[in-house]
Design a protein around this nucleic acid. Sequence first.
DNA 1: AATTTATTTTAGACTTGGCTAAAAATATAT
DNA 2: ATATATTTTTAGCCAAGTCTAAAATAAATT
Lengths: 215, 215
Amino acid sequence: MTFSEENYLKTIYHLTSVSDADISTNAIAEKMETKASSVTDMLKKLSEKDLVNYVKYQGVSLTDKGKLAAKMIVRKHRLWECFLVEKLDFSWDEVHDIAEQLEHIKSEKLINKLDDFLGNPTEDPHGDPIPDANGRIIKVEKQLLSEFEKNQIGICVGVKDTSSDFLKYLDKQEIALGSQIEIIEKESFDSSFRIRVGTKEITISNKIASNLYIK
Amino acid sequence: MTFSEENYLKTIYHLTSVSDADISTNAIAEKMETKASSVTDMLKKLSEKDLVNYVKYQGVSLTDKGKLAAKMIVRKHRLWECFLVEKLDFSWDEVHDIAEQLEHIKSEKLINKLDDFLGNPTEDPHGDPIPDANGRIIKVEKQLLSEFEKNQIGICVGVKDTSSDFLKYLDKQEIALGSQIEIIEKESFDSSFRIRVGTKEITISNKIASNLYIK
DNA sequence: AATTTATTTTAGACTTGGCTAAAAATATAT
DNA sequence: ATATATTTTTAGCCAAGTCTAAAATAAATT
Ligand SMILES: [Mn+2]
Ligand SMILES: [Mn+2]
Ligand SMILES: [Mn+2]
Ligand SMILES: [Mn+2]
């Protein structure tokens, strides 16, 4: 499988996990910052290889084979992210681009040994689940902070947006995975939140709250 | 720089280290298992980018820029080999193919952090020197075992052939980097050697002796 | 229901890196 | 000095993956 094929599969997998319905050519094109015509070409190719179910004009979904392949790429991406953060001391906002490259390294033995070396982590540095060697994923219940109400308390367990900008903002506010967060006030006018993180009290916009997973 | 360009540079670098003269199109083609016509195409491209000095029919050599680029790829290859052996517990005959992929990962920060994580090794699992971040290499004096004479004693510090077959043969004979080797007898008829490795006495062919570096 | 708009596919072109076969240049042998 | 062999380059083709522009289909509006 080529890098390109792998990237398409991964994108379809990620889009599926949010919408559930068949994925449109345009949605893929947008996510991958490419042209719809290029997507059409690739969908034919992936369909030929039984990695996707594709009917012209009707959108696309992953076959079981395609889904497993996608999960294996995600597994590699997230394990490498763990490696970079845990072992090489990268910060969580620096690892994504490097993992985008590393996820294409082909060696089952390598990724399984890396998994063991890291102590078989179940989540990556952004709180996303890591599929095991068989593609199984441990789902953890979590809600967006924006859905919480006044006086509720939770632990930050993940981020929805993994952009460097957002992650750096969280660093600045000293919000990390594992931080305890308490809702002090929810402003009805703009849906912003007054929260306590550790000992500090801060105000965050609804946009921020909509990108933090809490348990 | 593409994977292909990097592989050509690396090949030219390795060929240079043995012959010193300009490298022929055919020599590159043979080493890379490709066609001379493909090599010619790539040499034009590398020349355009000032990575090689290339004159039609006259062979090719690396420019300073090309040599540094080649060394950085070799650096990555060898550091990743160390990682695989030291940290992930691969054996020395399994790491080459994986390192062939990993050497193309683009991130200076990654490779320098990996270098530190490994304790800044100066040699890879096969005894080959690892260029530092500036491309500097620590040269170690070493001779082929085949050049040794009766009663000489040395330490095995490297292998010339790094094929899996050869390395597995060495494992079987319990010859590893660091092993003490003593020449008991040199057979004049076929230039084979009777040697002592640790406590064992074995006979090795001249071909084997010509692929072991001793200090 | 007809028409307009948006989405998706097709057609044709381009780039990269490969190939074969033929031509040109260089090296070797007579 | 000439003929032969080898090496290298050129010319022309192919496949993958991308693009633009045009055509086809589906969805939305009137
Ligand atoms: Mn990531
Ligand atoms: Mn992640
Ligand atoms: Mn190697
Ligand atoms: Mn090596």
